[in-house]
Nucleic acid binder design. Structure first.
Length: 295
DNA sequence: AGTAAACTCCGGAAGC
DNA sequence: TGCTTCCGGAGTTTAC
């Protein structure tokens, strides 16, 4: 599923393929994918040039000529990519935009339709769903900013995943970062010692940047803007590995629900109670501690 | 007021 | 083969 690294890869490809390009004919089958301006995309998009392609959190932001802004959220199964016109559109393709002076098309496809497209040109009446918030991008926030976020009396996982607080953290990279920093997902953020919060801030940036370089993670659906899967799923240490041994201490990983989401942790490396500092096991065969799923 | 949990959307996958 | 259940990003609603 597309999270920040996957969206960043899509944006990098689209930036090169779309910048300066002008939209031609537009086709869209269903209206409920479009929000914001009540006018249909067939009316709003043709003849617009793409000025820029940016990202905030998991949100793609296209600035178009004439002051129209186009935001795309991929939700869980969304894909935004350029295809040759000769490629038959895959099922659940909701928008096809011809690119002028090329044989290519920009297409938006979204099987489950948790994603959407927002067309906004300022003062128009807003229809459909509200634009998903995207405040401070988690990859761009500095330590003082992150430290302020951590003052809240909330479960750390719920806090990190709250797009009103930090934009860009999703389930996969949240679990990976919490594991890397040795923090249990339901610990209260404000109670986490400062050195560990700092380790978390570093882990988040390190993991997200590594995932971007690896082209993101493909679990089931995600394909990049060149229609290729990511490779970072091979580097996952907890996500999707419940029951398998921890890569650090060999304790079986445990699945639980945190922040309403399926969550995988190492119960030994991510203790709920404040304990002695976690030290990295030198040999991958330390004693196994309890692997009791907590209730 | 701030937090948390349940519910909504949807369709594919997995399980019975 | 054909049900039912589960899952989740993010908004909304409801309840502490």
């Amino acid at each position: 599923m597309p999270e920040l690294p996957e969206v960043e890869n899509v944006v990098r490809v689209l930036r090169r393929e779309l910048k300066g390009v002008r939209f031609g004919r537009v086709r869209s089958a269903r209206r409920d994918v479009f929000h914001g301006d009540p006018r249909p995309p067939q009316e709003l998009l043709p003849r617009r040039a793409v000025h820029s392609v940016e990202r905030t959190g998991k949100r793609i932001e296209l600035a178009l000529s004439g002051g129209l802004r186009c935001y795309v959220h991929l939700g869980m199964t969304g894909q935004l990519a350029v295809f040759p016109r000769s490629d038959p559109p895959a099922p659940h393709t909701h928008l096809i935009v011809d690119l002028q002076n090329t044989d290519a098309q920009l297409r938006f496809r979204d099987v489950r339709r948790f994603g959407g497209i927002w067309l906004l040109d300022g003062a128009e009446r807003h229809v459909g769903r509200p634009l998903p918030v995207a405040r401070d991008d988690v990859l761009k926030i500095d330590w003082p900013g992150f430290r302020r976020v951590m003052q809240r009396d909330r479960q750390i996982k719920a806090l990190l995943m709250d797009q009103h607080v930090l934009a860009g953290m999703g389930n996969i990279y949240c679990d990976e970062a919490l594991f890397a920093a040795g923090i249990h997902p339901v610990r209260r953020a404000a109670a986490i010692p400062e050195d560990r919060a700092r380790a978390l801030h570093r882990a988040i940036r390190r993991i997200l940047n590594a995932a971007i370089r690896a082209g993101g993670s493909t679990i089931r659906d995600y394909l990049g803007a060149r229609n290729e899967p990511g490779r970072f799923q091979k580097a996952h240490r907890v996500y999707g590995r419940a029951g398998k041994p921890c890569t650090r201490c060999r304790t079986p990983l445990v699945r639980l629900i945190a922040a309403g989401r399926g969550t995988t942790i190492c119960p030994a490396c991510q203790p709920l109670r404040t304990g002695p500092a976690i030290r990295r096991a030198k040999s991958p065969r330390t004693r196994r501690s309890r692997a009791v799923p907590r209730g």
